[in-house]
């Protein structure tokens, strides 16, 4: 209701000492993190080392795979370990090349465009494991940044008991700054995802007598596979196209 908005904003303008609400962007000296944060340089291996340490401290697992095959194999090993019967996975090109469960007893559902919402949600709810790719992995905090899309359902990393995330070393960035920059760029092409989930470890709470409990509403385990080899699949749908620049053993974000 325009009328209510106008009077609401006019009231605010008035108490701030203005005749009417400001409509042009006010000047800002600095935006975002302190300068030293954005300009810091990381050694090429630091983001990976940070990521591993951080996620493992939060009870997560990190497996560094030599190549796609090794990654695929590790997933099968984990699924067996978890005694998983049902798995739901993003309908993601690279994942589909890596994850092969045809010769197992595991039922694999894809979060695909052709399936109904009801089917997909039920499949995710009943799945023991949800497998996703990762748009960005953030070293500094051990975080997975997942962007939603028609083939990348939020539910896949949320409803199943275990979340397995797969990505390449190329997807790893040192800090959240890179992700935020990407989101701000996407703004200009109206391409900001409908959901960006920053996931740092499993679901937890200390609400009961400050006693830590892992796995409240979200996944109880977050296991990741990092493939130490560049992929040969073209990214589309506006997902990450540029790789971070490496130069002289230093990673520039």
């Amino acid at each position: 209701m325009q009328g209510r908005e106008q009077s609401f904003l006019s009231h605010i303008a008035k108490v701030l000492g203005r005749d009417k609400p400001l409509t042009s962007a006010p000047n800002r000296d600095e935006v975002g993190p302190p300068v030293f944060w954005k300009e810091q340089k990381f050694d090429i291996n630091q983001p990976l080392a940070f990521f591993k340490t951080n996620l493992e401290n939060l009870t997560g697992k990190v497996y560094i795979a030599r190549d796609d095959q090794d990654a695929g194999q590790q997933i099968r090993v984990w699924l067996e370990e978890l005694e998983a019967k049902r798995v739901i996975m993003w309908d993601h090109e690279e994942l589909k090349q890596i994850v092969h469960l045809e010769d197992t007893n595991v039922k694999l559902d894809y979060w695909s465009k052709d399936r109904s919402q009801e089917d997909l949600i039920i499949a995710a709810e009943q799945a023991d494991v949800g497998i996703t790719w990762v748009d960005y992995a953030i070293g500094y905090t051990g975080t997975l940044a997942l962007f939603s899309s028609p083939t990348q359902g939020r539910s896949v990393s949320l409803l199943p008991t275990v979340h397995i995330a797969v990505f390449r070393k190329d997807n790893l960035v040192p800090t959240m700054s890179t992700v935020m920059e990407n989101l701000m760029e996407r703004r200009s092409t109206q391409n900001v995802p409908a959901a960006i989930d920053f996931i740092t470890g499993p679901s937890r709470t200390s609400d009961i007598e400050m006693d830590l409990s892992i796995g409240v509403h979200g996944p109880v385990k977050v296991w990741t596979i990092i493939i130490d080899q560049s992929g040969n699949v073209q990214h589309h749908d506006g997902m990450r196209e540029e790789l971070p620049l490496e130069k002289d053993g230093v990673l520039y974000t």
Partner: peptide
């Protein structure tokens, strides 16, 4: 904590053809 387990940036409503959100 460095970050909580979930920072959810909710840019609702869902995009066309999305099945959750």
């Amino acid at each position: 904590q460095k970050l909580t387990s979930y920072i959810s940036v909710v840019n609702a409503p869902r995009k066309e053809n999305e099945k959750d959100g």
